[in-house]
Amino acid sequence: MINQVYKLVAPRRIEVSYEDISLNTDKVIVRPKFISICKADQRYYTGTRGEEILKKKLPMALTHESVGEVSYDPTGALKRGQAVIMVPNTPYEKDELIGANYLPSSKFRSSASDGFTQDYIAINRDRLVVLPDEIDLRMASFSELISVAMHGISRFEKTAHARRNRIAVWGNGSLGYIATLILKKKYPDANIIIVGRTQQKLDYFSFADEAYTSNDLPADFSFDHAFECVGGNNSGDAVNQIIDYINPLGYISLLGVSEDLVPLNTRMVLEKGLTLQGSTRSEREDFENVVAFFVEHPDGADELQRLIGQVIKVRKTEDIIQAFEKDLNQYWGKTVMEWQI
Rank of each mutant, 00 (worst) to 15 (best):
Y251V: 09
S279E: 15
N289A: 14
G250V: 04
G236F: 03
R281E: 14
N289W: 00
V230D: 01
S253T: 09
E271D: 13
V269M: 14
I246Q: 12
E259T: 04
D244Q: 13
S282A: 08
K272M: 09
R267W: 03
G250N: 13
N289L: 11
Y251P: 07
S253H: 03
L249A: 15
V230G: 05
P248R: 10
Q241K: 13
E259I: 01
V262E: 00
I246G: 06
G236C: 08
Q241F: 00
N247M: 10
E283V: 14
F287S: 05
R267G: 09
C229H: 10
T266D: 07
S235I: 08
G256A: 04
I246Y: 05
V257H: 11
L255P: 08
N240I: 09
T266Y: 15
S279M: 05
G273M: 07
V269D: 06
Y251K: 14
D237R: 11
Q277L: 05
R284Q: 07
S253K: 01
D244R: 15
L255Q: 11
L276I: 10
D286Y: 02
E271I: 10
L261M: 00
S253N: 10
L276Y: 11
E259R: 06
V230R: 10
I246D: 03
L261E: 00
G232D: 02
T280C: 13
N247T: 12
Q241N: 14
G250E: 08
S253D: 07
